[in-house]
Amino acid sequence: MSYELDQISEELTDAVSEAFENMFFADIENCQDLESIETEKDSYLISVDTLLPFSGNVGLVIEKEYSEEIVMDMTGGDVEEINKEMIDDAMAEIGNTIVGRFLSRIVPEDEEFSLGFPECLEWDSNPEYSIKSENTRLFSLEMEETCVYCILSKN
């Protein structure tokens, strides 16, 4: 079975929408294909490798300010001070959930899928992954007060 980026992209954006709706009750209002990611805001890159059924990577670019809101939301506001460890943990949980859901959507029933460990990195607009190319697709998913960028790439 082939996993062409253009054929599986919608499954990824659907997985992102499903995760944000179920985890944070945040509706994705608009989803667009992008030629490049250009954000001035300080952001994190959640990076998760896809190992099976195809070798590639999913990246999620989330504003730092929004990542703190996510931690507050996950904990029901029950924290005095948000630290980087909490943010890393929350971003890893989001990355795992989204990429797991994405891969489970694209593999035939009973077929295995596998993903790597999620990493929460500082976002910098490295052209290698912030510009659309033969092996990279980019999307913006707009919510009421923020925008999440999504990168799907194949090795």
Partner: peptide
């Protein structure tokens, strides 16, 4: 994951 436990609890 502390956050995953918090999400399930919520």
């Amino acid at each position: 994951s502390t956050m995953a436990r918090a999400l399930i609890k919520r």
